[in-house]
Nucleic acid binder design. Structure first.
Lengths: 263, 263
DNA sequence: TGATGCGCATTGACCAGACAATGCGTTCCG
DNA sequence: CGGAACGCATTGTCTGGTCAATGCGCATCA
């Protein structure tokens, strides 16, 4: 026999996924459920609801009740600096509605000098004592934070340059790096999927049960030396991460082994 | 004044991140914590611990106690079918240890004919009545499931072909599609970050607080018609998703506006 | 009319227990 | 010596409450 709190969660989850409880709608109150499932203890009902909360399906709004979460992802394109036109030819756009949605963006920029974390140090191949400069940006849409974006570079490289101004750089910080002799020609993207830290929850105002993608970009100059590490924290409930790939003509008859879009 | 259960969670989280409680180590028992924080009610302590459980930091093991989770991500490379040599030149490998780790892989394959979900139908641009074939694979490493991989294609395209055999296809199913006149030349990757469904928890034996990436690959033929949709479910605690990008010489002096590795 | 205050429904935090389930180690017995 | 039985520590499920916090609507009053 399944525990009561699980039956409650399963039943409600079912109703959410089959549309009986559409996004934005209100769930039965704890008291309703307590009665319906014949379980007197409120904690049991709460235990069931907390499952759904941690799955990111519902949010409690004291004292109004529990509501089915509404999500509306934006498109996040790590490749956007590469592409000439938005997507190749836009055979995809019918899939990805509401791009940007014409809502006005804003961002905070803050520059400081810090000791690098291990993540940053290994990727920039720094010596133990070397310091780095960091350009921290929090991006907002209609005032709501939706993305944290911290770039790190060796202090000796960017010191005194425009890279370190805490304002928008019109021609782009990559251009600044290029003028410093480090044109970025290659990048490695690592995407880690995890739950947010309490700090991230605060800065991004994340609801419960919302995972994030930690998107670490290491960029390299033509001589294969790492130049910059950027760590993006991307809330899962507000974004789809999108990449486009084309078959490289050079690498044509290689790797016939496994399925494509697989592995 | 912060609630007790939060203080408990904060203190323990701190100890985990600063190494006082290393991965694999055992936490104080509920009774210990109850005493330490002077809170009599067990439920309060449990509430605090459940926060950490849902953040994926600890796992309860009845009746042994709570333990700090150990994670060891594998590298997941959506682009692997493109690349000729493993990574470009391998200037990255020092970052990504334990690639594959020489553990022997295995997979279940299962083929069936189904009505497409909305996700699949829109991406394959199918008519309402059209059926699709699906090739479902569950991949294991040392018996442990680590990846679900379902490919969909229009039934009329693959019916009767080797694509539908529920066994490994030596030359690759992409080759089969090529022989059917649909060589795959372009792909769109969408990555959604979310909590798993109960079904995914079961199939992948996910611990609590483990988010997943839903990686949807739509592949296109040379005439821009969609051929196949593959949905990968990638557990966050076992994988890093890795992409490599190179600056396209054609698209050189474009997009100077925003930072690179940014958006 | 408009602002103020009050009640009320609902969730948040906490208390003080009970009994069940489950691994693990120890003891006991053949 | 080897296996079965038992006890024990610990978490899992659930009972049956209390008081606090918080929006919201409604009534009250200037």
């Amino acid at each position: 026999m399944k525990p009561i709190y699980q039956r409650i969660a399963d039943d409600l989850r079912e109703q959410i996924s089959d549309g009986t409880l559409p996004p934005g709608s209100r769930l039965p109150t704890e008291a309703d459920l307590r009665e319906k499932y014949g379980t007197s203890a409120r904690s049991t009902v709460r235990q069931g609801l907390s499952l759904l909360v941690n799955e990111g399906l519902i949010v409690p709004q004291r004292p109004k009740g529990y509501f089915v979460r509404e999500i509306r992802p934006l498109v996040y394109r790590p490749q956007s600096e590469f592409r000439r036109r938005p997507p190749e030819v836009d055979i995809y756009t019918h899939l990805l509605a509401a791009e940007g949605d014409e809502r006005r963006p804003a961002q905070d920029i803050e520059v400081s000098i810090v000791e690098p974390t291990t993540t940053v140090r290994t990727r920039l191949q720094l010596k133990d004592t070397e310091l780095v400069a960091v350009r921290r940006r929090t991006r907002r849409l209609d005032g709501e934070a939706y993305n944290i974006n911290d770039s790190y570079a060796s202090l000796s490289l960017v010191e005194g340059s425009e890279w370190m101004t805490p304002t928008d750089v019109a021609r782009g910080t990559n251009q600044v790096l290029a003028e410093l002799g480090k044109e970025l020609v290659r990048a490695l993207d690592e995407i880690y999927v995890r739950m947010p830290t309490p700090d991230e929850v605060r800065r991004l105002q994340l609801g419960p049960g919302t995972p994030v993608a930690e998107h670490v970009v290491t960029t390299y100059a033509a001589d294969d030396s790492p130049v910059q590490v950027t760590i993006n924290i991307v809330p899962g409930d507000r974004h789809v991460i999108v990449y486009e790939r084309v078959k490289d003509p050079q690498d044509f008859e290689e790797r016939p082994r496994s399925d494509w879009g697989a592995e």
